[in-house]
Design a binder for these strands. Sequence first.
DNA 1: CACAATACCTCATCTGTCAAGGTATATCGG
DNA 2: CCGATATACCTTGACAGATGAGGTATTGTG
Lengths: 116, 116
Amino acid sequence: MSIASDLIRGHTDNIILSLLMKGDSYGYRINKDIMELTDRRFEFKEATLYTAFRRLEQSGAIISYWGDEQAGARRKYYSITDKGRRQYIESLTEWEKTKNVVDRLLYAAKHEPEGL
Amino acid sequence: MSIASDLIRGHTDNIILSLLMKGDSYGYRINKDIMELTDRRFEFKEATLYTAFRRLEQSGAIISYWGDEQAGARRKYYSITDKGRRQYIESLTEWEKTKNVVDRLLYAAKHEPEGL
DNA sequence: CACAATACCTCATCTGTCAAGGTATATCGG
DNA sequence: CCGATATACCTTGACAGATGAGGTATTGTG
């Protein structure tokens, strides 16, 4: 739990793009990376993750291909496209704007009486 | 425009509680305050706002009463309860955690190669 | 008198999340 | 050898929040 999903909603696709900026990866590994990066404070539910992959592939932000594992379960790898890279870059600006706006609104009550 | 609603989702109720921490207010005014606090970068859609009021009142975080305006349109005022105050305080911690987690994930690609 | 601003409300629809279910392979302890 | 656990993928239906579109009523302004 830790982080409510409604607080992450809107970041899902961009988080996936962010991890794919480091190189091609596959679903299970991406979620494990997310867990590690957040000290186990967050991970996607599987259904959410695969829904996001489908959405991103349909919009052209990523492409997929099957790996040629000799052993173990097959893996579907994802690769970020130029469109996906642009979307990722834009998401960083969006996130900075969001932090600014939410900070102002959530701390409105505390910063308001500055006239004292 | 400006801020995607999915990035605010999850903060809606807490933003309203934050403004009510400053004192009782009513829907129309709250939304105007939000617009000003964010330099017109953000405001709620009316339907979103009133949905949130109903949700907050049903959960006991706020209570409402009709103002006794002598002139002009009638106003429904909202007042934050103790439960609402506790929820607001908790939301600040949640928000700080969320910022930390999203920062880590969105900037993962940039901070990763630290071994150089 | 038309229009804008104030001020409230509802309903149907859309989107993203997720519980629950499924498939298949590899490894490890007993 | 068998059951459990980990890896790795997928789908479906239900649910919750946001919102477009519509509505009501009052007051002030040109």
